[in-house]
Design a protein around this nucleic acid. Structure first.
Length: 327
DNA sequence: AACGCGACCTGCGAGC
DNA sequence: TGCTCGCAGGTCGCGT
């Protein structure tokens, strides 16, 4: 489940089920889902068994579970935490859902999903499912173990129950996301202006701002009334602020609705779909009226264009490309 | 630096 | 009833 709201739905669901529990068994059903773990499936499983889950952390679309008691990190977690009794993790279980990945909590009695890729057995806990399953139809996502390293700015690595100034190494190259309290608009705007590219491409660049994918990029651009090809070096501060605020608002609303799902591919850890698809104003609305224009008594039809090998939806009237080439 | 493209995959609906 | 094509919420790495 791709974009930030859908991943955050998973993070929140996962926290209450897995925090503090120990991974007692690992079954890699399809090694392709663990291919980003360079040392192979056996090493992946061996280092996970016996590990205790300390938290669930998210930055952008990346999710990771800081671990204590892994063989790789030694007993008690990482190298010498400051206060005894509070383990500082050095290793985390990374998860990226790609296009179709799911993390599901299931009882052992529930039949395996068709696309079950990895099964984690968890220590018994009252009334809680025993298994955390990674299910992935297209196998663009995956699980792997990674080191935790200090963040560049000293702030928390991501959204967590107990924030630590550590980040999963494999997520260190992405920027903070718009829902992160440590996100800096000033830095975003400075870097945006320095680029020679189009606005949608910039919004999708996880190194500049993370968490935004194809749906919420189109929604944010529509809400901010900006064209996807707008050159980033022509953007005024107010316009950049408008599109960032729009992204933040639309993702916050989507999160409250449990995320966007058009089909059963996008579900929370309990298998339920969100319903934000009903609130979409741009994505997938080719040939339909622009809701804002219609409200103003104008008749305009949403268009679909190919851009970056994917579809972009926008309103030709309120998100115009200027005829004279001047923005 | 920026970009375009292919690679990584499975499945679904449309059209013939 | 097939079959092929285009399409899908992502990311990475390679060319130019």
């Amino acid at each position: 489940m791709p974009e930030l709201p859908e991943v955050e739905v998973v993070r929140r669901g996962l926290v209450s089920w897995v925090r503090g529990r120990t991974i007692t068994g690992v079954e890699v059903v399809d090694p392709r889902s663990v291919r980003r773990h360079a040392l192979g499936p056996e090493d992946f499983a061996g280092n996970l068994e016996g590990a205790r889950v300390l938290d669930v952390v998210r930055r952008g679309k990346f999710l990771w579970l800081p671990l204590a008691d892994t063989p790789a990190a030694g007993p008690g977690g990482g190298p010498s935490g400051p206060a005894a009794g509070t383990p500082v993790p050095a290793v985390a279980l990374m998860a990226h859902l790609g296009m179709s990945g799911q993390l599901l909590m299931q009882d052992s009695s529930v039949a395996d999903e068709k696309h079950l890729k990895v099964r984690l057995q968890l220590s018994a806990a009252d009334g809680m499912p025993e298994q955390l399953r990674f299910v992935d139809q297209r196998i663009f996502g995956g699980l792997f173990l990674t080191s935790l390293i200090p963040t560049a700015d000293g702030g928390p690595g991501g959204l967590a129950e107990t924030p630590l100034p550590l980040i999963a190494e494999e997520a260190a190259h992405i920027a903070r996301d718009p829902l992160d309290p440590y996100f800096s608009f000033e830095e975003f705007y400075r870097r945006l202006r320095a680029r020679k590219t189009g606005l949608k491409r910039a919004l999708l660049d996880q190194g500049l701002v993370s968490g935004i994918g194809n749906i919420y990029a189109d929604e944010a651009l529509w809400k901010a009334r900006l064209h996807f090809a707008r050159p980033t070096d022509t953007l005024r501060r107010a316009e950049a602020g408008r599109v960032l605020d729009a992204a933040r608002e639309v993702m916050t609303e989507a999160l409250a609705a449990g995320g966007t799902s058009f089909d059963s591919l996008y579900v929370n850890v309990n298998g339920a779909s969100g319903y934000f698809d009903r609130s979409l104003n741009a994505y997938g609305r080719e040939g339909k009226e622009c809701k804002r224009c219609a409200a103003a008594g104008l008749a305009s039809v949403m268009r679909r264009e190919q851009f970056m090998n994917r579809s972009s939806y926008s309103c030709p009237v309120c998100q115009p490309r200027p005829r004279n080439g001047r923005w």
